[in-house]
């Protein structure tokens, strides 16, 4: 019954291939990622330190820190930064509170209702462009649904996304609609993984539901809350599609985010050097923030 495998110890290619498999399997992905991240990073640093002439035949001139110094005095940049921060704080904050609240309320009722859960998850998977036009339709001042509701309630009609005071609010509402499900889903997953025993022990010890929430649920959920916040904040810091369609950054730059501003600088003002400088600023703040956040929340594992 002996069955041989052919050549006694295999050929040398096979041995070489097996020996280097750990490198060979990693190589394609590493090459792609290295090319597509290292090259752009170097380019950005070089571009940010030069003055690129719109005329491609003229050589680049070294500009030192000029492009970065412009950040200090550029009011449009400050507006973009401010808008991005306001958007991040209010959008992520609302999504978190709503998502956590809904998860706490629905945890025990929705666990087995996978179908319902999937429907509730839908918004975050839809194309942002489709979401943006949907909300544009809802916000439409003349025939939009929102003003119809205001009218029925006897409230003054608004221009919503077109109103200087309400534009940011409108963008935030649309984002909250799309991304609360994300928080909800992660919180639900966190709640589902909670152990039962500590709650039973706490109940025997006479802890109220409110105490149990503060002393047990929140500490247990902390890692997943931190991850959820981090992922969302990194997304909101780069917000583009929604404002691009919904408001175009207006009115009066009230919803102009940093991403939108970089896009304008690079393509409308044709100033890639300055765009590179702003991009690097965004990159460094994102990296600095996430590193700080990861350390602070002890998420390294």
């Amino acid at each position: 019954m002996t069955v041989s495998i052919g050549a006694k110890f295999g050929n040398s290619f096979e041995r070489w291939f097996e020996r280097h498999l750990r490198v060979l399997m990693l190589a394609p992905a590493m090459l792609v990622l290295l090319t597509l991240t290292i090259f752009p990073s170097i380019y950005m640093i070089v571009a940010a330190a030069t003055r690129i002439s719109p005329n491609p035949d003229l050589p680049w001139q070294f500009a030192g820190a000029d492009n970065f110094l412009r950040l200090l005095t550029d009011e449009q940049f400050h507006v973009g930064l401010w808008n991005t921060l306001v958007f991040t704080v209010f959008a992520v904050g609302t999504e978190f509170l709503l998502g956590l609240g809904l998860a706490l309320l629905l945890d025990r009722y929705i666990r087995r209702l996978n179908f319902l859960k999937t429907i509730l998850m839908l918004p975050m998977m839809l194309p942002p462009v489709a979401v943006a036009i949907t909300w544009k339709l809802i916000y439409e001042p003349q025939f939009g649904v929102l003003n119809e509701i205001m009218f029925r309630l006897g409230l003054p009609l608004q221009a919503w996304a077109g109103d200087v005071r309400l534009a940011m609010f409108s963008v935030i509402v649309a984002d909250v609609w799309q991304w609360t499900p994300f928080m909800f889903l992660l919180m639900l997953a966190g709640l589902a993984s909670l152990p039962d025993e500590p709650y039973e022990a706490a109940a025997i010890d006479g802890a109220s539901a409110w105490r149990q929430f503060w002393d047990l649920t929140l500490p247990f959920l902390k890692p997943i809350i931190a991850i959820a916040l981090l992922l969302r904040i990194m997304d909101t810091l780069r917000l583009f599609d929604l404002v691009f369609i919904l408001t175009g950054g207006g009115p009066a730059d009230r919803t102009k985010t940093l991403s939108l501003y970089i896009y304008q600088v690079a393509y409308r003002f044709a100033d890639p050097s300055y765009a590179a400088a702003i991009s690097l600023f965004v990159l460094f703040t994102t990296v600095a923030f996430s590193t700080w956040f990861i350390k602070r929340m002890r998420l390294a594992d």
Partner: peptide
């Protein structure tokens, strides 16, 4: 009689 240090598992029988 075979030294198998560098032999792949499949050939060790």
């Amino acid at each position: 009689s075979d030294r198998v240090n560098d032999v792949l598992p499949k050939y060790r029988d």
